[in-house]
């Protein structure tokens, strides 16, 4: 039996943010906003929710740029990897293929 998908991550906006943060050390707020194509306030709301959940860390740079950056916390990475494993298992089951042993973060090693 597979676990149910993590509802908190399984929303388009949060999934986009987490997927952009996954391979990176730090990602700027401006890059997240422009790539996802959302507004400052909508992205701030999503980042706050992810930060409250302990999935991301947000840093406000006090240097000349005064830019804001975000990164995944170890807890966020673990949750995201588990979510991806569940997702892959679901897709494999839907295709009727045998499911291999769960491999944390399998999708995070693809597509690069």
């Amino acid at each position: 039996m597979t676990r149910p998908l993590d509802d908190f991550l399984h929303t388009p906006a949060r999934l986009s943010v987490m997927s952009l943060l996954a391979p990176a050390e730090w990602v700027t707020f401006a890059f997240l906003r422009d790539t996802i194509g959302t507004s400052d306030s909508a992205l701030s709301k999503q980042l706050s929710a992810l930060e409250t959940a302990g999935y991301v860390e947000v840093r406000k740079d006090r240097s000349a740029h005064r830019s804001t950056s975000a990164r995944m916390t170890p807890g966020g990475r673990a949750a995201f990897d588990a979510y991806l494993t569940d997702l892959e298992e679901l897709v494999a089951r839907a295709r009727g293929t045998a499911t291999p042993a769960p491999r944390a973060g399998a999708a995070s090693h693809e597509g690069g």
Binding site: A22, P23, A24, L84, L87, V91, S108, G111
Partner: peptide
């Protein structure tokens, strides 16, 4: 689920 996986790969490639 398939759309979500595709989205993850697309966003990862963008980053």
């Amino acid at each position: 689920p398939q759309g979500a996986l595709t989205e993850v790969r697309r966003r990862r490639a963008q980053a």
